[in-house]
């Protein structure tokens, strides 16, 4: 990445508001994600996290405000292959779909390859490389529906990675994934961020498990309750958490060695929200 492009933030949001019909879901959101940072975006269920992500991806049009991607207003932005996305819904895709891991990951290149063009040998190598990177090479010709939730999620990550995005957005990617895979998964994200300088936005409501990987935190509940770097967040986190979730909620900073059932608990009530 060159110095010039680094000058532009990967994402810049200014007084953004959004509503589904009359129901205001996002109000006056303001924040910036510099290139090379790793933002944890947190908030309770229904706080508008997925809605915000959909606005950033251009799937929803905000009522007010502006979104800039790599310095370009969103309606003028065409470099969509710079952006990778792993959706929350990935877990509830049509699991009977008769496609192999290889075919699914190939989709990640379709946008880049473009209309009226076909995948070349080189593209196919890239697909294999991405599959290897997430450790799924043994399953390359398996049907996607026959894999476990965690394995499927890794395949979707590979699909997002194969086009070598500069900004990777993940919406609650660990829902339905077992605790051990979650740790591996976070480690992989950390490597992408540190070694490749990839900008990451990770939506989660379990920030505790993330604190050692991320660089910045944003707390959302309709409005933005906090945005700053991790150190600032740690100083105020008790206040933050109670203002976000109500009283008596403390962040438990998980460590690597014991996987308690906090994870599974979180994932349970996650699944019901949508």
């Amino acid at each position: 990445m060159t110095k010039e492009s680094q000058a532009q933030p990967a994402l810049e949001i200014k007084n953004l508001s959004f509503s589904y019909g009359k129901q205001n879901v996002l109000e006056d959101i303001h924040f910036t994600v510099p290139q090379g940072s790793f933002l944890g975006l947190m908030g309770p269920n229904g706080s508008g996290k997925s809605t915000l992500i959909k606005c950033i991806l251009g799937l929803l049009t905000p009522k007010e405000g502006s979104i800039k991607l790599f310095g370009k207003p969103i309606h003028q932005f065409h470099d969509w292959n710079k952006i990778g996305f792993v959706s929350q819904k990935a877990n509830s895709f049509n699991s009977g779909f008769p496609a192999t891991v290889f075919e699914v990951v190939s989709m990640g290149l379709y946008g880049k390859v473009g209309l009226f063009r076909f995948l070349t040998k080189k593209h196919k190598l890239q697909v294999r490389e991405a599959i290897k990177q997430v450790g799924m090479e043994d399953f390359i010709h398996q049907n996607i529906g026959q894999l476990s939730g965690g394995q499927q999620q890794r395949v979707f990550i590979a699909r997002a990675l194969v086009s070598e995005p500069e900004l990777l957005i993940l919406d609650e990617p660990t829902v339905g994934v077992d605790a051990k895979s979650v740790q591996n998964f976070y480690n992989m994200l950390k490597r992408l961020n540190k070694e490749r300088g990839m900008t990451l936005i990770l939506v989660t409501h379990d920030i505790g498990a993330m604190t050692e990987y991320i660089t910045d935190v944003a707390c959302l509940n309709k409005c933005l309750h906090f945005h700053g770097n991790k150190e600032e967040f740690e100083l105020q986190q008790e206040d933050m958490m109670s203002s976000l979730y109500g009283h008596d909620v403390r962040v438990i900073t998980h460590n690597h060695d014991h996987h308690d059932h906090d994870h599974t608990h979180d994932h349970d009530h996650d699944g019901s929200g949508h």
Binding site: W80, F85, E103, M107, G111, L115, L119
Partner: peptide, 23 residues
């Protein structure tokens, strides 16, 4: 032949297909 890959992507995951610029 022309649109196989786009229709495949759209059938599998419409949102993702749209994000990657498929009309």
């Amino acid at each position: 032949v022309l649109f196989y890959k786009e229709w495949f992507f759209l059938s599998f995951d419409e949102d993702q297909a749209v994000i990657s610029g498929i009309p």
